[in-house]
């Protein structure tokens, strides 16, 4: 059972010009085959126009324990959101 093909994370850009989105993972011996496998596995229903693959071990991630310090400070910055500001209707669309 040695020699397992590496695991790749697959990102696909859908039909409508959105960013690439993580859709799942698969195994492949190298990046070229990972792209081909992703085409065969994850675009069977016409889901994509572009594929990115990244070997899973190369992904760095935030630790769940850091969630508070990393993300909570932005909760209080309500002025970053357009709805914070009341603009009179007569000014028109802004």
């Amino acid at each position: 059972m040695k020699n397992e093909w590496p695991l790749w994370e697959i990102f696909i850009r859908g039909q409508h010009g959105m960013s690439h989105r993580h859709v799942g993972s698969l195994h492949a011996p190298d990046a070229e085959m990972a792209i081909k496998n992703a085409r065969d596995v994850y675009t069977r229903r016409n889901e994509g126009v572009s594929i990115w693959v990244v070997e899973a071990r190369h992904i760095a991630a935030t630790a769940p324990g850091e969630k508070g310090p990393l993300f909570e400070p932005s909760e209080s910055k309500v002025y970053r959101h357009p709805t914070f500001f009341d603009i009179p209707d007569e000014v028109g669309h802004m």
Binding site: W5, L26, H27, A28, K36, N37, D40, V41, R44
Partner: peptide, 11 residues
Amino acid sequence: PILEEDIALAN
């Protein structure tokens, strides 16, 4: 031999 190839061959 492996799921990925099975799916590709079916395509």
